[in-house]
Write a protein that binds this DNA or RNA. Structure first.
Length: 575
RNA sequence: GCGCCUGUAGCUCAGAUGGAUAGAGCGGUUGCCUCCGGAGCAACAGGUCGGGGGUUCGAAUCCCUCCAGGCGUACCA
């Protein structure tokens, strides 16, 4: 089947849409919940956490672009083993009281998240060297869960301080949240107990009286071996000492996400972002203005691919409890981890073993204290970008130089973390991440600035000019001949590409793949840069043709701006 | 062992629902600033799409099989 576009009609329609004279997206029913970041609050964030946050943030922006109501949650595992480990470090290695830990937190000369980063590595070494010390972890974890004594006090100070650090780190790259859900609240409000009772009632879990799992509550998974036999596929939900595993708590959390638990949190405002958004925190006391959180129609959990099995267990639990529809609406947004290139690991001061030197990458390890800290990376990027700004003499004002440098650095980082498909493992390398040329964020920003400069320059001679008026100035009758034939082909190709933003967003969402929109942005920028030197707008003598060129550039410029907004990349005034 | 993922140019990666001479960035070689600012553009070199079978008019894409690598299969998360 052959068919032809009415080029003029499409261009006209596209212009109206891109110039905001027609609503871009219809609002859609239901609420979509995106959970991302969810870093253990026991040490500084690293590059892997940034990948999680950027993927989750772009995905949420994609959904909002399509007109969905989206709620972004960040889960705080403040009663988990990792927090317990740092607590062990403070109590037993450093012999500090909770008051002394608080002094550390309040000391402006100390980066508390970096301090904990090192302490966590020390604790892990201590466990390796003293096997008996592992008992301290179990003991401490139980005390934290039961909110008893110094352990609970230290854990609370640590996790609260680290969460604030994480939020500040993420804000540097334009990542915001709607709600922080604390695991301690899930326990305190007996969310777990409610889920536990229900699972027992339905028979989704059973108590083991003998065998290797004696004393545990376990869930049987379909597939694998037969019930009761040695090779039965079983997952422990409640440990023999009565504490709940991560999966158990996650099952309760996910039931709540869908509004299936029959219980709810209380909320209090925690922080107001510079842009006005309020970040809420689950809390003991309720707040009258609290929005109705949860009750989502679709849930996306951005969690690395190594946790696929655990996420499958959560979905299996929902099904076992009869919530088949919810299980089908629970999406594990799985992505590969970020490791380090051997060269990068060495630059960070890590000594490689001969085998590690042979490999293409070195695994990041919080326990070894090996990883690229998020803030260090951003500092490096900002320094390099600011230096570029200085050398290009964009402005002499040091404050502006830094502001531009920051915007460009964050653009580079966000694009770098978005351009890979989520299934590929990234071996982080300074050379690639610090690049500002080629397929990078700054290339996109530069292109957007280029396009805008045409209008800025044009307005110098035509102060009353409003690009949105171009729509009336150039109707379909004028557009028809301009798009026709060989001479119109370049214009048509660029316009047709600009018309595909919605398609790219759609494809990005159905595949849960932010890289599709990132690649689209690059392709659009590349096409515009190719067009740019061939059609000089400002020196065009024919007024009608000049108006047409402005029309095309405006459509592309607006499309690129909207695409960058979806990617969370800001466009500087100059570049 | 079982489950999931990956293998495309020297390097890093795109190629969704099978469609024409397999694309981009980096790196290499070579051109292009009397400027809407070159963080750019153009050109050249570079690929038996891990191997082998099969389905199809047509396969990087679907199926089978083998090889190589990764991850998971914890009373850690």
């Amino acid at each position: 089947m052959n068919f032809h576009f009415d080029r003029a009609a499409l261009a006209s329609e596209l212009f109206r849409r891109r110039s905001g004279q027609q609503a871009a997206a219809v609002s859609r029913p239901g609420k979509l919940l995106v959970e991302h970041t969810s870093i253990n609050p026991n040490k500084a964030a690293h590059i892997g956490h940034l990948r999680n946050a950027v993927l989750g943030d772009v995905f949420a922006r994609l959904l909002r672009f399509r007109g969905h109501s989206v709620e972004i949650q960040n889960y705080i595992d403040n009663t988990g083993v990792q927090v317990a480990d740092v607590t062990v470090g403070f109590l037993y290695l450093e012999r500090k009281t909770s008051a002394e830990v608080q002094v550390l937190v309040d000391d402006p000369g100390i980066r508390f998240d970096y301090y904990c980063w090192d302490l966590y590595a020390r604790v892990s070494r201590h466990y390796d060297e003293n096997k008996s010390a592992v008992a301290l972890r179990t003991e401490t974890l139980k005390a934290i869960e039961e909110r008893q004594g110094e352990a609970a006090a230290v854990a609370k100070i640590v996790s609260t301080a680290i969460v604030k650090k994480h939020l500040a780190t993420m804000l540097r790259l334009n990542v915001e949240y709607d709600l922080l859900v604390e695991e301690s609240e899930i326990l305190r409000l007996d969310f777990w107990k409610a889920a536990f009772e229900e699972m027992k009632r339905i028979g989704a879990i059973r108590y083991e009286t003998e065998g290797k799992n004696a004393g545990c509550w376990v869930m049987s998974l379909d597939g694998g071996g037969r019930a009761g036999e040695e090779n039965e596929d079983v997952k422990i939900i409640v440990r023999s000492n009565g504490t709940v595993t991560y999966v158990g708590k996650d099952i309760a959390y996910h039931l709540w996400k869908f509004g299936l638990l029959g219980k709810d949190f209380n909320y209090a405002p925690f922080y107001q972002y510079p842009g006005g958004r309020i970040l809420w925190l689950t809390s003991a006391e309720g707040h009258a203005d609290a929005l109705a959180f949860g009750h989502a129609s679709q849930v996306y959990s951005v969690i690395d691919t190594r946790q696929s099995y655990l996420q499958a267990v959560v979905a299996a639990a929902l099904r076992a409890m009869g919530h088949r529809e919810a299980a089908a609406h629970l999406h594990h947004f799985a992505y590969e981890v970020v490791s380090l290139s051997p060269a990068c690991a060495e630059e960070l001061g890590y000594e490689l073993s001969p085998e590690e030197r042979e490999q293409n990458y070195v695994e990041v390890s919080g326990r070894k204290g090996l990883g690229m800290k998020a803030d260090d990376l951003m500092d490096m990027l900002i320094e390099k970008a600011t230096e570029e700004v200085r050398s290009r003499r964009m402005t002499d004002d040091p404050g502006e130089q830094l502001a531009y440098g920051r915007m460009i650095a964050i653009g580079a980082l966000r694009y770098f973390l978005s351009k890979f498909s989520r299934r590929v493992a990234i071996a982080f390398d300074f050379k690639d991440a610090l690049a500002f040329e080629g397929e990078t964020g700054p290339y996109l920003q530069y292109t957007a600035v280029r396009a805008r400069n045409i209008f800025r320059k044009y307005a110098e001679t035509q102060p009353a000019f409003d690009p949105r008026s171009l729509g009336e100035k150039i109707g379909k009758t004028q557009l028809g001949p301009l798009f026709a034939g060989q001479s119109g082909l370049a214009f048509w190709q660029l316009t047709a590409l600009a018309a595909q933003l919605e398609l790219a967003v759609e494809e990005s969402i159905t595949n849960a793949e932010p890289s599709i929109v990132a690649k689209y942005a690059f392709r659009l920028a590349q096409n515009f840069n190719n067009f740019y030197p061939h059609y000089h707008v400002l020196s065009e003598p024919d007024p009608e043709r000049q108006a047409f060129l402005l029309f095309i550039v405006f459509v592309v410029s607006q499309t690129l701006a909207q695409t960058l907004d979806v990617l969370g990349i800001e466009i500087p005034e100059r570049m």
